[in-house]
């Protein structure tokens, strides 16, 4: 299926967001000698400051695509470019928030958030950025707590702060809200939307929650089953802040569920 629509330039684009180009990327895994293709000739471009959701059935290869964008792995073929430069390895301008918070259990909240600055050797002069990031996610009272003392939602907030403290140009969200309870998820969706609007970084969100995708993103890219191929590229042009009950969003949600073959129960 071809793209339903083409997005116009995102209105919130600021200078700080990075552009991302994915050109003809294919990837596969070797599992006990057998080759398992996961991505099949995927190409798309993300403009600076855009919020793009990658939507697809579970296990279709979306998360693999994010690992390629993050530079944690190299694709079998095709290229990925950030602002025109090929992505060859991880770089702190592209930070990932994973499905599991993966906080380091031996570090306090403050030290977890400080991780990136410490790894880049700039913590000594930039300590205030850690405080600011913790403030931003509303956990100032917990800076000395250890991860096992936090709830799931708080841990994921810390993971978000740990990413944001690096001033990313491209924020990569790999189902970051997937394991949270539905109330916390709704709160955090709104927080992510407002953070993105204020900061202007480019955001790539992998999710299998259609409502989350249409609520947050300017653009929803729908993938097929594995090996993932782009099925549709849909613009979501409702202004922010959005409302979950917006009939336009409901309509869009229904269309997307249709693309995934799941509209029968709607």
């Amino acid at each position: 299926m071809v793209a339903l629509a083409v997005t116009e330039r995102a209105s919130t684009a600021l200078a700080r967001g990075a552009a991302l180009d994915v050109e003809g990327v294919s990837h596969a895994f070797d599992i006990d000698g057998a080759v398992l293709p996961v991505l099949d000739d995927v190409s798309f471009s993300v403009k600076p400051g855009e919020f793009v959701a990658l939507l697809g059935p579970s296990g279709c290869g979306k998360s693999t695509l994010l690992r390629l964008v993050a530079g944690l792995e190299a694709p079998r073929s095709g290229t990925l470019r950030e602002d025109g430069d090929p992505i060859t390895g991880p770089f702190p301008s592209r930070v990932v928030v994973f499905q599991d918070p993966t906080l380091f259990p031996w570090r306090t909240v403050w030290n977890n958030v400080a991780l990136g600055l410490e790894a880049q050797g700039i913590l000594k002069t930039q300590r205030h950025r850690v405080d600011a990031a913790i403030e931003l996610v509303g956990l100032s009272g917990f800076r000395n707590a250890y991860p096992h003392q936090l709830s799931g939602g708080m841990a994921q907030r810390v993971a978000l702060a740990r990413a944001l403290v690096n001033d990313p140009q491209l924020l990569i969200l790999d189902e970051p809200l997937g394991k949270l309870d539905s109330l916390t998820r709704i709160t955090m969706q709104a927080e992510i939307a407002s953070l993105w609007q204020r900061s202007g970084f480019t955001t790539l969100l992998v999710t299998h929650d259609v409502e989350e995708a249409v609520f947050l993103a300017n653009r929803v890219i729908v993938f097929s089953d594995r090996p993932a191929r782009i099925k549709a590229d849909i613009a979501v042009d409702s202004p922010y802040p959005r409302h979950r009950g917006d009939p336009k969003l409901s309509e869009l949600r229904r269309n997307i569920l249709g693309l995934l073959g799941l509209d029968a129960t709607w």
Partner: peptide, 29 residues
């Protein structure tokens, strides 16, 4: 040590020495 810890540290700009001293060793303690 879970690979996820290394992934997190690497995306945040960690060099190999950081991965050994600040990730592998504390996790193995």
């Amino acid at each position: 040590v879970s690979n996820a810890y290394y992934d997190v540290a690497r995306t945040l700009g960690a060099k190999p020495s950081f991965l050994v001293l600040k990730v592998a060793i504390p996790a193995a303690l």
